[in-house]
Computed example of a mutant assay.
Amino acid sequence: MAIQKHISLVLQLVIVALVFNRANGSSLKLGFYQNTCPGAEAIVMKTTANYIYQSPSLAASLLRLHFHDCFVRGCDGSVLLNSTTSNQAEKDAPPNLSLKGFEVIDAAKAAVEATCPRVVSCADILALVARDAIHLINGPFWPVPLGRRDGRVSIALESRSLPSPFANITTLKANFASKGLNVKDLVVLSGAHTVGVSHCSTIATRLYNFTGQGDTDPSLDPKYVPLLKSICLPNDKNTTLAMDPGSSQSFDEDYYKVVLKKRGLFQSDAALLNDKLASLYVKLYSQSHGYKFFKDFQDSMVKMGKIGVLTGKAGEIRRSCSLVN
């Protein structure tokens, strides 16, 4: 019953979005499957809800999966493809080895295929699942223009273009700019770190050997370091810790408060304070009580979801999200 009520509410929001946002400035459009597969969005929502209600932590993983897809070759579902004997695919590249949630995409695809074979792309399903998963944990809801088609190419080496958690602000700005995203988008999308966890191995250098002299990253709050070291012992590759301590399963603005305290987990989090405009946005969102952050997050997710999309007759509609046709 709870799932049905949530789906009903979401569909009402979609209808409102269709009325007020028909023109989106690209070849993607809201309600793309209204005639060819009218139940697609409800099917995806129901499938996603079944997983998220059992494991809310999957929401962060599914959002990350969408992000990693869009930053390599655009939002074409290439991150979902399996490697073959002759090619190592994106999902097997080092930055993607910790990705989770593929089973949710596969389940949603199977459910949609049972109703509308070869109509709805895996890339669109991934975009919808990421939105629905975040909304189901009380995060923002954003309109998802649809019409993406699936790419046929997935190359592990191309995953080097993903933003690194070790990157400085100059590199981050250049990386986002190459995708048509600005400083505001960088700060807003970094806010996704308000949910989820990371492994100790990601911050080991910051804690134990930042400059190769057995030192700690000076951009970390020195009062916070002992706690991190008590959780992450040297050479610990398995332990996980929250990216937004105390609020890692709540999609809220607390991440920005953590960054301002110099307790952001990654070097890329700390880097946001090394740019005048970026730091201003961090301060703004830390004081927004969620509203401003949610609104801008919606806008940046729509913008990100349009990166390098394949439309029209480009690409294909995969039968299985892990395999080209």
Rank of each mutant, 00 (worst) to 15 (best):
Gly290Phe: 05
Gly151Met: 03
Gly196Val: 11
Glu316Tyr: 04
Lys46Gly: 12
Val10His: 06
Pro94Trp: 15
Arg22His: 04
Arg160Ala: 13
Glu113Asn: 12
Asp252Trp: 01
Gly77Phe: 01
Leu284Tyr: 11
Glu103Ile: 09
Lys173Arg: 15
Leu265Asn: 05
Gln12Ala: 03
Phe266Asp: 12
Asp254Thr: 05
Ile3Leu: 05
Ser201Gly: 02
Leu233Arg: 13
Lys313Ala: 12
His199Arg: 11
Thr240Val: 10
Val104Gly: 00
His6Ser: 05
Gly147Thr: 13
Pro38Ile: 14
Ala156Leu: 14
Asp106Leu: 03
Glu316His: 09
Arg152Asn: 10
Asp236Ser: 07
Lys313Asp: 15
Ala278Asp: 09
Val324Asn: 01
Phe176Cys: 00
His135Ala: 09
Val153Asn: 14
Ala49Phe: 06
Ala107Gly: 08
Phe32Asn: 07
Pro218Arg: 08
Gly39Ala: 12
Thr211Ile: 13
Asp296Pro: 08
Tyr51Cys: 03
Lys179Leu: 05
Phe141Leu: 10
Arg131Trp: 01
Ser121Phe: 11
Ala17Val: 10
Gln267Arg: 15
Gln4Ile: 11
Glu158Ile: 08
Ser159Asn: 06
Arg73Met: 06
Val225Pro: 01
Ser121Asp: 15
Gly147Leu: 11
Ser219Arg: 15
Leu233His: 11
Ser78Cys: 02
Gly308Thr: 00
Val104Pro: 00
Ala17Asp: 15
Thr48Tyr: 00
Ser159Ile: 04
Phe251Lys: 00
Ala42Ser: 04
Gln298His: 04
Gly151Asp: 06
Ser230Gln: 12
Tyr281His: 12
Ile52Leu: 01
Gln12Lys: 14
Gly151Ser: 09
Lys276Thr: 14
Val119Pro: 00
Pro226Trp: 02
Asp244Arg: 06
Gly77Trp: 08
Ser198Gln: 08
Val197Leu: 07
Ala271His: 02
Arg160Glu: 14
Ala204Gly: 03
Leu28Gly: 01
Val187Gly: 03
Cys116Val: 08
Thr85His: 06
Leu260Ser: 12
Val14Arg: 09
Gly246His: 13
Ala111Gly: 08
Gln4Asn: 13
Ala17Asn: 14
Val259Lys: 02
Lys257Tyr: 06
Asp252His: 00
Asn35Val: 04
Glu113Cys: 01
Ile43Ser: 00
Arg319Ile: 11
Asp244Met: 03
Pro163Met: 09
Val144Tyr: 05
Val44Met: 07
Asp299Glu: 09
Val44Trp: 06
Asn87Thr: 10
Val259Pro: 01
Asp76Ala: 12
Trp142Gly: 05
Ala59Tyr: 02
Phe67Ile: 03
Gly39Ser: 08
Leu128Thr: 02
Ser98Val: 15
Leu80Val: 12
Gln298Asn: 14
Arg318Leu: 04
Asn21Arg: 15
